[in-house]
């Protein structure tokens, strides 16, 4: 975990009640951790220390182990998703067409790594597997919007569009 500032945790009582329901549903079964983490991420959007601590305590699993599992699987996120979720396709076609450079440019502009979110909560960045739009390679999406046949110089303009 880097020293980057995280947006403050603002989980609600309702979310915690939902989480407890999920935990109680899985508690008795072996291998409860991963399904609980999945559903917890659906509730909160990510898995901050506060949520992982509740899960560790309730499932009687060491927090270090919970954190180990969360950091092992890429689908778990320690950071909240931004208002605008940028996803860069790193599938084979996009990759050979230079989507790696596009990803680097976004990282450079936003100052975040893959999986992270800007401190203002506006943008989060993901690298995805093939999204099935190889004809448009290289491709990125911002929420539901798709941008294809990109070159690195297109990136600043795209980000600018969402600076509302």
């Amino acid at each position: 975990m880097s020293d980057k500032k995280l947006p403050a945790f603002n989980g609600t009582k309702e979310q915690e009640a939902q989480l407890m329901e999920v935990i109680n549903k899985h508690k008795q079964s072996k291998g409860a951790l991963i399904p609980v983490l999945h559903e917890a991420q659906e509730i909160y959007g990510y898995l901050p220390v506060e949520v992982q601590t509740i899960i560790a305590e309730e499932l009687d699993i060491p927090l270090a182990e919970v954190y180990g599992v969360v950091t092992f699987y890429t689908q778990f996120s320690l950071y909240p998703k931004g208002k605008y979720k940028i996803a860069v396709c790193l599938g084979t076609a996009c990759y050979v067409k230079g989507s790696g450079d596009i990803l680097d440019k976004i990282k450079e502009i936003l100052g975040i790594e893959v999986g992270e979110c800007t401190p203002d909560g506006k943008f989060s960045l993901e690298a995805t597997r093939c999204i099935g739009a190889c004809g448009l390679a290289p491709v990125l999406t911002v929420n539901e919007d798709v941008y294809g046949r990109l070159v690195v110089d297109d990136v600043p303009g795209i980000i600018e569009k969402y600076q509302d």
């Binding site: 220390v49 060491p62 270090a64 180990g68 950091t71 092992f72």
Partner: peptide
């Protein structure tokens, strides 16, 4: 550490980034 039921360390991240570390490093 697990044998002492203290368990404050675990393997975190994966592949080349794997380290033995505490929760949230």
């Amino acid at each position: 550490c697990d044998n002492q039921v203290v368990s404050v360390i675990s393997c975190i991240n994966r592949g080349f980034d794997t380290t033995v570390n505490t929760a949230f490093e």
